[in-house]
Each structure stands twice: as C-alpha cells, then as structure tokens.
C-alpha cells in the first residue's frame, strides 16, 4: 500500500488570516507538506486551533491558500472533476433541517448531477450503510447529534467517492456513536476508499489509521505509520496496584520501581519495562499483599502527541 498512488498532496501550504478591525495578520498554517496515498486511512491530528480545519477548507476549495499548492487526484484543487470523486463531511455540520433524510441525500445527489435512478439506489444503500433506514422520512431537525453525523457521512458518500474527507467525525459523540463511526470508516476502507480525517481524539485515530500526521500551531511535527511513530521512542511501562503492602513490603519493592504512589492502604507502583515484573510480583506475594491490578502501559500516540505539543510550546 505504501507504494500506491498519491491521492492528496500539499506543498508548502500557507494561510494567514486578517483578524480584527486593524487587520492583524494571524498565521493559521505554516508551510504544510502532506501526502495521502490511495487506500489508506490517514489521521490528521492536532490540538484545537492547530490548523486542521483550515487545511481541510483549503483542500475543499472553501478558502484560498496565501501561498503554496495542493493537488487532489493529481490536479490542482478547485478542479471540478476531482471534486466529483470526493466526499466531504464538515466539522459539526448544520444541515438543512427542514429536509427529510431522503430529501437531504437527494439534494446532494442532484448537486453531483447524478441520475434519478442512481440517486434513488444510493439513498437506499447509504441509509442502510449508516443504519438510518428508519430516518428516511424524518426531518433532520428531529435528528440526534449522532444521527446528524451519520447522515452527514452518508451525504459525503452519495457520489461513491474515492476519497472521503471527514472533519472531526467523532467529536461530540458518545462512545457508542464513536464506535459506529469507527466501524463505518473501516468498512469504507474495506471498500477500497481512501479516508482522510482530522481528529483530536487520539485513541480512535490510533485504532483506525494506517498513517497519521500531527499538526501543532500550523506546523507539521510528525508524519508516518502509527507503529513507526510510537516505536521510535516507545517506552513501555507497567502499572501495578496493590493493597495492604505495608511499609516493610513497600521498602522491599521500592528499588525495583520507577515511582510509587501511596493512597491509604493502596500503593500504585510504576515499573519500567518487563524485566522487573516477576521480581516485584514475587515480593508482593511474600509480603502477603493483595494484587488489585496489573496494567501493561504501552506508549501510545497520546504520549507522542503530548510530547510533541509540549515541545512545540516550549520552543516559543
């Protein structure tokens, strides 16, 4: 997959906004280089205000870059043919709430110039896909947030696009809603679609993405496979929670741990690496303490993310 065609590419993309009465310049994006390949799920990550939405807006032709270039399907953005192969779900979308689910999808189908029969077929398929067949004749204003998000994704898929761009598809949803969206993304991936989505929820991204990039303050700070990014500086740790260890036991265990936090009768031990686990467990057993839990803590995208954000902020 890594060798497949590049479907989305940006080069030194830069965007500044004028804000306020005096037109103060604010830089939202500082020379962004991105590459998304065909068939992958690409996570575009960053804290709020990092410039993710700005980037997506540029790619969708909603705003114009101050400088730099971008291509979709090898053509400069704004090209109508490439827009026809694209599906987009904006962040926290508000839709025409007076339309019913089916009318809503039909409207967007018409905008793509699809024939009536194709639109009818797609409406059925998509409502099925996003699990909204029951909402076919329900007005959008009666939809819940999760339903809106799902019909929004259906809208983005009406033209059977090759590339699906989703802006914060999981934000504001409950855990079940998020799982549904995750499943949906994986299904789309199975169908061979390329998915490019922005998120600040890293857990989801970690589970879904082939590759991610991390954007902080308009700058790209990391880009690559999740495993590569985490592996590069992975530091596994193990958390052990024990009860009734006593001060003797604690003294026994302490040299083997990195950090100990005592809360009443309980103690949280943080171990560095696998090698001392057995030894620690042995000592707990001899101290006749009760083992509550043992959690292997893989270094996650989140750690990487937090580190990167801190580094960036520290620089300033």
């Amino acid at each position: 997959m890594a060798t497949s065609t590049i479907i989305l590419k940006t080069e030194a993309l830069r965007k500044t906004f004028k804000v306020g009465f005096w037109g103060r310049q604010v830089t939202a994006l500082e020379g962004l280089d991105l590459e998304v390949r065909q068939g992958e799920v690409f996570g575009f990550l960053g804290p709020n205000g990092a410039g993710k939405t700005t980037t997506l807006k540029i790619l969708m032709g909603l705003i114009y870059p101050t400088s730099g270039q971008a291509w979709l399907f090898g053509k400069p953005i704004g090209d109508r043919d490439s827009k026809a192969r694209l599906g987009f779900l904006p962040e926290s979308p508000y839709f025409y709430d007076y339309l019913t689910g089916a009318e809503f999808l039909r409207f967007y189908g018409d905008l793509f110039g699809l024939s009536v029969s194709v639109v009818n077929r797609r409406i059925g398929e998509l409502l099925e896909l996003v699990g909204m067949t029951h909402a076919r004749d329900l007005q959008l204003r009666k939809f819940s947030k999760g339903m809106l998000q799902r019909i929004g994704i259906a809208q983005a898929l009406i033209n059977d696009p090759e590339l699906v761009v989703l802006d914060e598809p999981m934000s504001g949803l409950d855990p079940i809603g998020r799982k549904e969206i995750r499943d949906l993304i994986l299904r789309l991936k199975e169908e061979g679609k390329t998915i490019f989505f922005s998120s600040h929820i890293l857990h989801d991204a970690e589970m879904l993405c082939d590759r991610v990039s991390i954007l902080v303050k308009g700058r790209l700070v990391a880009m690559g496979r999740v495993s590569d990014l985490i592996g590069a500086d992975s530091t596994h740790s193990i958390e052990v929670l024990v009860e009734g260890l006593g001060s003797d036991g604690l003294a026994q265990v302490k040299p083997l741990t990195e950090k100990v936090t005592v809360t009443g009768d309980r103690a949280l031990l943080i171990l560095k690496g696998q090698q001392s686990v057995n030894e620690v467990l042995e000592r707990i057993r001899t101290a006749k303490a009760k083992l509550i839990s043992l959690t292997p803590h893989n270094s996650s995208l989140e750690d990487l993310f937090i580190r990167q954000v801190r580094e960036q902020r520290g620089e300033e």
Binding site: L62, K83, F88
Partner: peptide
C-alpha cells in the same frame, strides 16, 4: 453562518 455552504462548495459545482 450555518456552515451549510461547506457541503455545497465542496461539491463539483462552481
């Protein structure tokens, strides 16, 4: 204001 335009401008219509 309601951002509905985002879904329209991103479609292949000028």
């Amino acid at each position: 204001d309601r951002k509905t335009i985002y879904t329209i401008v991103s479609k292949p219509i000028p």
